[in-house]
């Protein structure tokens, strides 16, 4: 009878280690180049969030949540932030928040263009799709191994891991959103002579925005989870509070970190989920929200509500 262990004749772990070491040594400039923008933007966000006085952060969150989502969610967000402050982990929470906001920016910057590219080419999608499958089924802390090898330990390598883990949903949803745009509308664009750029900006992207925002919600949640896990490679923030609590068997400290994480996660989830929900049929919520934010109600809106007879509003 053959023993399972006797099949382990190849030193695969050794090969991988050699390979990664080779990559780390020879492609060092590449990884430094990746690290540079992450380090700077993260540092900037972190600085801003810590430098802004507590009441101002609460007030801004209140305003933003109210405009992007609803009054209820705004109130919930403000109360969550105050509760986090009362738990005594305000600074750690701001560090985590800066990890997440930075990750959202990078994910949008990387994820949306890749998603668009996938939607336009079946060949690209057939290559990207299995990669996304692997990335999304890999347990989050498995990401940490190559990140430590290539980028070292600390908050910045942690951020690299957060971005890597959080980008796939956005790529997926962007691709899906564009592919789901009604065929006849795309045809109409072509029939009136749209070129590829016009087709994308006039038709596909605007109509895909609700789906893309759904992807953004997934990205935010993944970033939230990952920002906690990366405490294991020395990233600061709420995750570190939990890790320290566990390390010292300080259940109270670990629980405080845990509660703060849950509050922050719920707050971010509610706001981004509400953004993705189509409020008024048709109007893309983000654009509408930004428009509202910038100049209040438009002339057209007032006109609409005053002049539509009730019957005309019935769905046809």
């Amino acid at each position: 009878m053959i023993d399972a262990d006797s099949l382990a004749i190849f030193p695969i772990d050794q090969w991988i280690q050699d390979g990664v070491r080779w990559v780390a040594l020879n492609l060092r400039p590449l990884f430094l180049a990746i690290k540079w923008p992450v380090e700077n933007l993260l540092g900037f966000n972190d600085h801003i969030l810590h430098a802004t006085p507590f009441p101002v952060v609460v007030a801004l969150t209140l305003l933003l949540a109210w405009r992007l989502a609803s009054v209820g969610i705004a109130a919930f967000s403000a109360i969550s932030l105050i509760a986090i402050a009362m738990l005594g982990v305000w600074n750690e929470a701001m560090t985590t928040l800066s990890l997440i906001t930075t990750a959202i920016l990078f994910c949008a910057l990387i994820g949306v263009p890749i998603g668009i590219w996938c939607a336009r080419s079946d060949r690209v999608w057939s290559i990207v799709r299995p990669i996304l499958d692997i990335m999304q089924t890999t347990p989050t802390f498995v990401y940490l191994v190559p990140v430590v090898m290539l980028f070292g330990v600390g908050t910045v390598p942690g951020e690299v891991a957060v971005v890597t883990a959080a980008a796939p949903p956005l790529i997926r949803f962007t691709n899906l959103g564009i592919r789901m745009v009604e065929h006849e509308i795309v045809e109409a664009g072509l029939a009136f002579g749209a070129d590829r750029r016009q087709l994308l900006w006039e038709i596909q992207l605007p109509l895909a925005i609700p789906t893309i925002l759904g992807g953004l919600n997934q990205t935010v949640l993944t970033a939230m989870v990952m920002s906690v896990v990366v405490a294991m490679i020395g990233a600061e923030g709420l995750g570190l509070v939990v890790l320290q609590g566990l390390g010292r068997l300080d259940v109270g400290r670990a629980a405080v970190g845990g509660i703060a994480i849950v509050l922050l996660a719920m707050m971010l989830d509610r706001i981004t989920q509400k953004m993705a929900e189509p409020k008024s049929k048709g109007a893309s919520p983000l654009l509408e929200a930004v428009r509202h934010l910038l100049r209040g109600r438009t002339v057209g809106d007032r006109f609409t509500e005053e002049t539509i007879p009730a019957a005309a509003k019935q769905p046809v």
Partner: peptide, 16 residues
Amino acid sequence: RTRISMVFQHFALLPN
């Protein structure tokens, strides 16, 4: 853009 235009069965208007 200039010679042929088209009207569609399900209207194909931009909802946004």
